[in-house]
Design a protein around this nucleic acid. Structure first.
Lengths: 342, 342
DNA sequence: GAATCAATTCAAACCGCTTTGGATATCTCA
DNA sequence: TGAGATATCCAAAGCGGTTTGAATTGATTC
């Protein structure tokens, strides 16, 4: 059942039927009702492919996911972000198209997405220092919103980010207030922008209290359980081990905990742990009482909001770049306590 | 730059240019080369929207992800499957479209996907007992491949699954061989097909050795860290606690481990643990030496293969339903050992 | 040399919708 | 009463490709 058939059945022209269904004013209300009823009765759904060609809009948003070299992005955080963004798209009748491509094809993928007209815009994931995707997308004229920011990029662009610096600064201050002095940082890869900012927050807080940073207490690696485990093992083996550790994610935090407990120490008493909690839907930080003290910010909500921002930009490309900084909340769980007396 | 412009520039008809680019035989090789060169030079990419309308194919595959009520699916395993499937799509110039919709809209989403022509086929995720999506998709005539199987569904359909029953049967036998008798099962939700099969494998292995199953040793819940933790706590509190536990995933296995260690017991000595390892790219079960003894099967590879199967079905819908059963390997890690002497 | 055939190329229809530019009928108000 | 509005509807021209059916050319066959 297509438009022409429906029109014939109604004794109307395709023009009128199309207008009736799309809510244009130049159609008699009686006629419109008749058309609507017939459309429902015959289960008519306009063909998306035809609409797209006719309107010149893709009604779709792209997410490009590089693989192979750096698989950081295929992670649980990403999944939740996607789910959040997807909710927004569904509500607005947009499609979400995911492109999983080898690292080296990333540029070509963006260009193809634009020139073949598959999408109206894209979300940029996991921005790095001086991320090359931002100038690229600007150059080819594909609307985009960055989830995060790219330190080093000067020209303005659309982004939505969590205040990672401030979150880790507050977490560090919280530990300092509990009299911790030796505080370790188990960070993500520090070419990722969020990791850079978290480190800055951590360093700033220490410096403000006149505490020198110690390279031996600052690890940086992918946010896996194993790497959290190993980084912690190394720190605990120091002559002057930390009494508190900041971990970049729930998962690496679990590795930190395993190392602490494996060393015969007790979390929250011998060693305090604070994690960043993305509030993942399948990996809650406890239920009523949080397991970990954490800086929390829902990445799913971030996905929803970033998608909304992108749709707004697509609808009004001349509106100037939007920006939005979300604050993380500091929630107190069972993994922190006063520093043990030396 | 579109086809017509390119044709004009070449002094050819759109017909010939189209054919030259698409490799049709009825075009002079000299001409073809001229066209190819010009296309490259002018950076011509045919408009996807036009191709889709003209050919009547969507060149896209759908993945419908229900949310809200049951968020089991927004999980790390899903992310890796998607990544694998996405690789296949990219290689074949197909788009992957994800629809994140409220549970109650799932049916409507499939129908709309079909009647609006957004996709050529779909992958069905996380099948349940008597999954209603299978008859629905058959009814509306949308090609599909199920990742997993649906116990209770009689008519044949396309699926790709891991031999979950056999995997858990082997894992249980392995523990029995180590003289364990009290073996706990921390399973996923048992309306999910894979969980049903795993349980069957576990029960079969016990029964074959004449060991009665004990409901107190069989837990079923979402596969989160917390639920693995709690289920284990409960089992360890029994008068006759298990000396070994089978966990349905890496994540719940981490909860199991936390409970075991929290009880002052040693993994691999006091309590053995076997998990199912989906070989997630960001959550490796150790590096050289596996942390957990595990039944392993790469879900990412499953994604690749399921996508290939679906593309084959789309290309040849009359080919009859394909099926494929992957075997999991049993890999020995550091979390198992002989049963402690009672 | 006419008929046949293969190799190339093209004009035009088509995919299913949107949208422009009338056309027609009905009103409105001087 | 008649010109200008207004309301309603439609024919036709896109959108940018693919594909059918036919035309043209040159070579081959008899």
């Amino acid at each position: 059942m297509n438009l022409k058939e429906l029109a014939t059945k109604l004794g109307l022209s395709p023009t009128t039927v199309s207008r009736a269904l799309n809510g244009y004013p130049e159609v008699n209300e009686t006629t419109r009702e008749r058309v609507m009823a017939a459309a429902k009765r015959h289960n008519y759904h306009p063909n998306t492919r035809a609409i797209r060609l006719a309107t010149g809009r893709a009604m779709a948003v792209g997410h490009v996911i590089p693989i192979a070299t750096r698989h950081e992005i295929v992670n649980p955080v990403f999944a939740d972000f996607i789910a959040g963004a997807g909710e927004t798209y569904s509500r607005n009748d947009y499609d979400m198209v995911l492109s999983v491509v080898p690292d080296e094809d990333e540029d070509a993928t963006y260009r193809a997405l634009k020139s073949k007209g598959n999408v109206d815009g894209v979300i940029v994931h996991a921005p790095r220092l001086n991320d090359p995707r931002i100038p690229l997308l600007r150059e080819i004229g594909l609307p985009f919103v960055v989830h995060g920011r790219a330190t080093g990029t000067l020209e303005p662009y659309c982004w939505l980010d969590v205040n990672n610096r401030r979150a880790f600064q507050r977490a560090t201050e919280f530990l300092l207030d509990l009299a911790h002095v030796r505080i370790g940082l188990v960070n993500g890869l520090e070419f990722m922008d969020f990791a850079i900012r978290r480190r800055t927050g951590y360093v700033d807080a220490l410096t403000a209290r006149g505490i020198a940073t110690d390279p031996a207490l600052m690890a940086s690696d992918e946010m896996t359980e194993v790497s959290g485990y190993r980084a912690t093992l190394a720190m605990l083996a120091l002559a002057n081990p930390p009494t508190a550790i900041l971990a970049s994610s729930m998962i690496s935090g679990m590795g930190v905990r395993r190392a602490v407990e494996g060393a015969g120490l007790t979390v929250g008493r011998d060693v305090s742990i604070i994690i960043h909690d993305d509030d993942l839907s399948y990996m809650k930080n406890g239920e009523d009482v949080p397991i970990f003290t954490a800086t929390r910010s829902s990445v799913r909500e971030a996905g929803r909001l970033a998608a909304e921002m992108l749709l707004a930009v697509i609808a009004n490309p001349e509106g100037g770049p939007q920006q939005r900084l979300l604050e993380a909340e500091l929630i107190i769980g069972q993994s922190t306590g006063p520093a043990p007396r030396g």
